[in-house]
């Protein structure tokens, strides 16, 4: 029993067919649409590596059914800006934040979501609950302070 639905990702519509409408958005974005910037870390809503914006809100895509994401505006790291021009990306490069970098897409989407909700500077930091196993928090904090 397959279902066909349309996802709007980074302003583009993608029609996909899934066997299981409860497939998490994460895997639809990665495997079916082919955008791999959004990462799998834990699959249980803890690490935040899979964070994307859904209608402007940061959401953990590992725990959102693809069927409930259909028709909503989804933004992934690939759609955050053209040419790394989002202020958070600019700050991340300036402060040389990433180490392995694996968590950073999710972190940047959390930061972008907090900024969109009107947070600035250190009040962004309290919104960002992402896990970074490389522990780049100090530079994240420095980068966020200027946003």
């Amino acid at each position: 029993m397959s279902t066909t639905l349309t996802l709007n990702v980074n302003g583009q519509n993608h029609t996909i067919t899934v066997n299981d409408p409860s497939m998490p958005l994460l895997w639809a974005i990665r495997d079916l649409i082919g955008l791999t910037g959004t990462k799998y870390g834990c699959g249980i809503e803890i690490c935040g590596a899979c964070t994307v914006l859904v209608d402007g809100q940061p959401e953990k895509s590992c725990d959102m059914d693809v069927s409930s994401a259909a028709g909503r505006a989804i933004v992934t790291i690939e759609g955050l800006s053209a040419n790394r021009t989002h202020p958070a990306q600019v700050a991340w490069i300036k402060h040389q934040v990433p180490q392995c970098g694996y968590c950073q897409s999710g972190v940047l989407m959390s930061v972008a979501g907090a900024m969109q909700a009107g947070h600035t500077g250190s009040s962004i930091a309290s919104e960002v609950q992402n896990l970074c196993v490389c522990c780049t928090y100090q530079r994240m904090r420095e980068a966020i302070a200027g946003l």
């Binding site: 959004t38 790291i77 690939e78 955050l80 790394r84 990306q89 970098g101 950073q104 897409s105």
Partner: peptide, 11 residues
């Protein structure tokens, strides 16, 4: 490698 790690393009 840092630019590739802020826009999702690092593979």
């Amino acid at each position: 490698d840092i630019p590739l790690k802020v826009d999702g393009s690092a593979k």
